[in-house]
Amino acid sequence: MPSPRPVSLTARALGVALLLSGVPAVTATAATSGPAAAPTVTAAEVMPHLQALQQIADRNGGNRAHGTRGYAESVAYVKQALDRAGFRTQLHRFWHDGKVGDNLIADWPGGDPNHVLLVGAHLDSVPMGPGINDNGSGSAAVLTTALQVAKAKSKPERHLRFAWWGAEELGMVGSADYVKNLPPTGRKAIDLYLNLDQAGSRNVQQYLVVKDPKNGGSAAFQAFENWFGARGLATFDIPLDSSDNQPFGDAGIPSSGFSSGVSDCLHSACDNLANVDPATQEISTNALIGVVWQFAAKTPATTTPVTSRS
């Protein structure tokens, strides 16, 4: 998450030794078509990814920041898990502040290439700490969601694409570079972008859901509201410029997503594994999985609006 802007806290809130034991190799084989209920995961399926990111930071100066070996190893860890699961992965390289960075893009085979559901999170930390909640937690949730797509041998109507952004802590550099370099047809093909930032905050009071009425992201916003509300979890809506959604919103791409809130350890050395609540991480990951499954269909299933506000 980039450094806070001068706005209110609520508005802003938001070789490599690869530890892939427990990540099954899944191939993109055929599966029966048609809608299926979204799977659910436990914290035990998500937390190993955060443990891996913590260990990467530990052996690389305590951080995973842009242009460092810690960031390069973080990308390699996620990429190998996706490659083993049957995704088509690419590194989109860019330069910023005299250092090389990478966005990792992973496409699941199949689905309509003219109707893309893109799900992303920033993978980099700040130099001051390992960035396990900000934003290893969001990155781990997106990775777990992608691996559930592979495990289910999903055949979605929309094409599913997952992304992990670099240099976002320096001002949403990676995501902006990706959007800037999309050809007009590629930009038009993205029906919806979903972002997850800080998915495992401790002492959550409410989930901060990105609202994008201008570009047509209201249906996704409502889907997240419904998911949390149906479980009695309070929400609060925040604007597009609160996180990595901004470059997509500026390009007219419908967008939503959420955060579990700002941690006391934001951008600090204490943003380590102990700064993540496994229960919150589990909730956030399942919320993302649920909404991804819903919008993988070109016409998402409707749900009765259920919201809970504080």
Rank of each mutant, 00 (worst) to 15 (best):
Q205K: 14
Y193Q: 12
A251C: 02
N181E: 04
N215C: 03
S268E: 15
D197A: 07
G257D: 00
Y193R: 06
R231K: 15
D244K: 02
D212G: 09
P183R: 13
L208N: 06
D191E: 14
N226D: 15
A230N: 10
Q205P: 02
L240D: 15
S260I: 11
N215L: 04
Y193D: 02
T235E: 06
I190V: 04
N226Y: 12
F248S: 00
G229D: 04
D271K: 03
R187K: 15
Y193W: 12
D271Y: 07
G261D: 03
F228V: 03
P213Q: 08
D264Y: 09
P247I: 04
V204L: 02
A189G: 05
G252D: 10
I238P: 08
C270R: 04
E225T: 07
D241H: 15
D271C: 06
S268Q: 13
L194R: 07
C270V: 01
S259I: 04
T185P: 06
S201W: 05
S201V: 05
P183G: 13
A251R: 10
K188G: 02
A230Y: 12
S259R: 00
D264H: 12
A251K: 08
D241V: 10
S260T: 15
A230L: 12
V209M: 02
D244A: 09
Q222A: 14
E225W: 08
D250F: 10
P183D: 08
D212M: 03
A199D: 08
V210T: 09
N195F: 07
G232K: 07
L182K: 03
A189T: 00
V210K: 03
R187P: 10
F248P: 01
S242I: 02
G229L: 09
G229F: 12
L196D: 07
N215S: 06
A269H: 05
H267F: 00
N245W: 11
F258S: 02
R187T: 14
S255C: 13
S255Y: 10
N203T: 12
D271G: 08
A269V: 10
A269I: 08
G200R: 00
S259L: 11
K188L: 03
D244L: 11
Q205E: 14
A189W: 03
S243E: 07
G232D: 07
V262H: 01
N203P: 00
G186L: 11
D237A: 14
Q205S: 15
